[in-house]
Design a protein around this nucleic acid. Sequence first.
DNA 1: ATGCCGCGTGGGAGCGGTCCCACGGGTGGT
DNA 2: ACCACCCGTGGGACCGCTCCCACGCGGCAT
Lengths: 345, 345
Amino acid sequence: MSPAESRSSTAGTRRPTLNAVAARAGVGRGTVSRVINGSPKVSARSRAAVERAIAELGYVPNRAARSLATRRTDSVALVVPEAETRLFTEPYFSGIITGVSAGLADSGMQMLLVLPRDEKEYARLADYLSAQRVDGVLLMSVRSEDTLPDRLRELAVPTVLAGRRSREEPLRHVRCDNRGGARDAVRHLLGRGRAAVGTITGPLHMDAARDRLDGYRAALREAGAGEELVAHGDFTEGGGRAAMRELLRRHPALDAVFAASDVMASGAVLELRAAGRRVPDDVAVVGFDDSIVARHIDPPLTSVRQPLQKMGRAMASLLLDEIAGSGTGRHEVVLPTELIVRASA
Amino acid sequence: MSPAESRSSTAGTRRPTLNAVAARAGVGRGTVSRVINGSPKVSARSRAAVERAIAELGYVPNRAARSLATRRTDSVALVVPEAETRLFTEPYFSGIITGVSAGLADSGMQMLLVLPRDEKEYARLADYLSAQRVDGVLLMSVRSEDTLPDRLRELAVPTVLAGRRSREEPLRHVRCDNRGGARDAVRHLLGRGRAAVGTITGPLHMDAARDRLDGYRAALREAGAGEELVAHGDFTEGGGRAAMRELLRRHPALDAVFAASDVMASGAVLELRAAGRRVPDDVAVVGFDDSIVARHIDPPLTSVRQPLQKMGRAMASLLLDEIAGSGTGRHEVVLPTELIVRASA
DNA sequence: ATGCCGCGTGGGAGCGGTCCCACGGGTGGT
DNA sequence: ACCACCCGTGGGACCGCTCCCACGCGGCAT
């Protein structure tokens, strides 16, 4: 038999159905179905017969048929707006996705990766996803003004967000302790004897950026020391540079900076160097995210790491809870961060 | 109506079916189906009526039902071995995934992201995927000795690989011109007056690594100049350092290095610095991949960029061809690279 | 007129599961 | 001995779509 023949014959051969299994095992369809779904209402005898038949036939249930009958799809969508896919390169997405995948693995759920390319596609997503295509949705990087989550909520599509839009987020979500992480970072700087600690914030319409700023303030306050030295960035390297320049202009005596992201921190380092300041000798720098760049810029960056895998797992778990309808699940999960100390501070 | 009520009522309300559309439009089910599937055998009158009914009802076809009837799933799996997910952080995966997503978008295909966590899960994938779960498979980073592709082939599951296992790869695949890219890199070094150009290879059981080494050799040969200075790495930073150390030991006069990956190149830079050589003054360095680290290490790395998005699109396109059964599609697609010149060479 | 062709068209018969109802046979209580 | 009950079981009726066959009807050639 030539490869081609073997191929087509394999393709032509229909996979065994539940009916075939029933016939072979000498039982009814119902019984086979019960065995497959782990119902206890099956005698040991029938169960054994069915299991043997399944093994012999290499039977695998047809997802589409089951889905049609149960009105479930056993799959969830992971939505990452295209504007963010460049950030794929950050450990953030990769870590969370890996965690989600792990958290979903044992549930038999499939993970659909959805990357809307523009606003239009993103806007149509609610209809798309609610059209019995998925049992639940995981939304990455929602913006404060984003209404897709609300639409999904109206459509009763189980949804879990990575991060929250505001402090009154009505949807379930998972995030790291941005405030605590920032506070730890600033404490670290103060603990090393830095006196004038500035901060470069993210865009304040993002909750994470606000929380990190809060953490900075809290650390200063509890230390009872220091004026707040705040400049606003936008999570880009250029934004970090500009903010650093402004900080230096307004507060030339500054000797430490906490940037709300590594990318901004790397911009800050560039600017400091351009201004003739040494890092960390003259100015210590701490970032946030523990991204790739943190390890590779010079000097390596002290940074706040998020437990990304755990966050992903938590998202999966929250979503599975909601899909199962167990209203008991927690509404939000906040996971602690960890300060990774390197040479920059 | 409270939100809760609205929620449950929405959930309880079944979505309109094709039958409902037919009834509303005053036509038969067959006609609605034809309109949806773009059959030409429908009168303008019926078509208009159906389209209006669809719009009024907000009808969206049920995927499961269609899938059951057609024996297609309209979804493809994108498989990334877990061992590689850390590489998610490289632009490689993110770029290709984005490209695949774009290439699939207009076909109505869904993209299933499958991240097997260990060898066992990976091995079971063939059965899993062939059980009518997907219409096709995209395999990232297959190793030379990997047999999953062959199993998929036996099972007649349309498959496209990112990269090839060897020069006799029987499956369709997409890759960049590794040889040409490496050759360009070395030409660049030679063109800048470097005389003793070494290379740090990847693991030679990988086809891409072999091709890059070939490119290095070709460039030396065509220039008629220079001894081959080869050390072997393993695509890790540590491996790059070790290989660089060996090169320096064996060829102290070396004044340029082409590393088969940026990560190894960054290791090489560290080693060079440790050995008191300046980059690029004493030794110029070129990497491969144009990854994140290339932009962020000091000095910024000249590197060979792959057209990742295009590669992803090509993979999608090849797979769609194969699923459609148009045997006309090309067997392999090789896309050109681009040399990104930065400070390191 | 009559026949034939072909174009829309309606609807029956699946696709492969799940759900649930009804049924047979054993058990226990009166 | 009788009934009530429960447990395991078989199979009908869907789930919502596609496929395809058969049919009605108008236009054209005969």
